[in-house]
Simulated scan of single mutants.
Amino acid sequence: MVGYLLSEIGLGEAARLLVSALDAASIPTSLVNVPLAGRQAEGMLRPRLVSSGGHRLALTVSGALEIGAFAGRACRGQQNVHYTFWELPTVPDSWRAMFDGFDAFWAPTTFVRDMLMSVQKRPVHLVPQAIRLPAAPPPPRAGGPLRVLTLFDYDSYVARKNPQGAFEAFLAAFPAGTEDVELVVKARGTASFEARAAIARIAARDRRARVIDRTVSRDEMGAIMERCDVFVSLHRSEGFSLGCAEALALGKAVVATDFGGTQDFLTEETGFPVRFRQIAVRAGDYPGGEGSYWAEPDIAHAAAILRSIYDDPASIAPKVRAGHALLQRNNSPEAVGARIRSLLGADG
């Protein structure tokens, strides 16, 4: 397995969680880390790293943008499978040839699967992204203000993550300024001064908003998540959205744009999907976005949802129970490991 196994970025966490699925299925695995300068804060798999693998199949985890580079690095004789993350429904025509470097593709969501099937001819299989799941959804947090959390990485492109949308929905839902609510914005990444300044200006509009702008440990991030009641992602697109899935697994109400990979696990039964309208990706907003489209979330609808949760917090519990059951069936390490074992058996 080849990936950013020591990095704290989303692709690194996705790869580590996939390792947990391989381990759950007792599949012998050698781990090859791809260094990412300045972003190697997760050392849990360091003792298992090797310089190269020796198995009949190499599984590489990366974004679609990196497929060409990873093909040159990992594809050396054995069967080569790419586990692909991508946030748009299309890729530029000029990228299509680079998919030929791999023998097959695994997709973490139907959104990514459909993209892969539309742009290349190799076999594509749906292998849901594994996530950590408690045995049962935790009980609702008791006492204190209704605490809303949104998070993003500046390096994942602010236009796609759209943290401004979460601010606007929060302000529209609680305009009086006297409601017992808080908004916590967890940010990180190497953004320009202008991007950070823009987020700071928005947060300064309401004393109930707080920005945490730094990389934190796994335990500290877990504590931030534990203290919240609602997780908001008014993204314009997501290939999967680990944040939404983890929040749902941990018993939080998830309010998210109903577009992209979140559609596999966030429904009216499991959370609070937000309406959107389709818009073109503007030049410069995302690499490979030329001629593609994504979602513009309905801020008024998101605000109405937040207000309804504030007025009726008991509405969270049944959705969380349904969401946990769905994730257990599809995204637990055991379920994903069984899916991988089945695919390996089918491939001989």
Rank of each mutant, 00 (worst) to 15 (best):
E226L: 03
V91D: 09
E269M: 13
V320F: 01
Y157H: 06
S332L: 15
D23R: 14
M98V: 09
D206M: 07
R236V: 10
P138R: 07
V185F: 05
M1S: 11
F193H: 12
L248S: 11
P35R: 12
T110N: 14
A136R: 13
V34R: 12
L22W: 11
K161N: 08
R201I: 01
R282D: 09
S118C: 08
P318I: 11
L59I: 08
P139G: 11
F231D: 02
A37Q: 07
G63A: 14
E269Q: 14
I131S: 06
A198V: 03
I279T: 13
A69G: 04
L6F: 03
E220W: 02
R214D: 15
F99C: 00
A107N: 05
L306V: 03
C75T: 06
G12K: 07
A104M: 11
A24K: 15
G101I: 05
G271H: 10
H55L: 02
G12M: 09
T215S: 06
P145A: 15
T60W: 08
S26M: 08
A21Y: 00
A159F: 12
E238Y: 00
P134Y: 07
F240G: 01
V127D: 15
E226G: 07
I199R: 00
F99D: 04
A97V: 08
A64T: 15
R141Y: 13
A169I: 01
I199S: 03
S20Q: 10
S51E: 04
A130F: 03
K121G: 13
A14E: 07
G348M: 13
C244G: 00
R113A: 09
L65C: 14
A204Y: 00
M44V: 14
S7T: 12
G53M: 00
A74L: 12
H324Q: 08
I9D: 13
S52D: 06
V81Q: 09
R321D: 01
H125R: 09
R113S: 04
S94F: 13
Q78C: 14
G345V: 14
T190W: 06
E13W: 10
G239D: 13
A302H: 06
A130G: 00
I299Y: 12
V281E: 03
G143E: 02
D229K: 12
P163M: 00
G143R: 02
P138I: 07
V185N: 01
F174V: 00
I340C: 04
A25Q: 08
L327Y: 06
F70N: 05
A302S: 01
A58F: 04
E269G: 09
E8T: 15
P273V: 08
S94T: 10
T60F: 11
L151D: 05
R147E: 03
G284R: 11
I309S: 00
L327Q: 09
T60D: 13
G177S: 02
G271F: 05
A191M: 14
C244F: 03
R210K: 02
L326M: 12
I316E: 01
V185K: 00
P145G: 15
V19P: 06
L59K: 02
V50I: 04
R307S: 03
G222E: 14
G177D: 04
S94E: 08
R307E: 09
P175H: 02
Q129N: 13
L248G: 10
P333C: 11
S217F: 09
T90A: 11
W294T: 05
A209P: 14
L45P: 02
G3P: 10
E220K: 06
V320P: 00
A198F: 02
Q40P: 07
P163W: 06
F102D: 04
L242Q: 04
S62V: 09
R218K: 05
N330K: 15
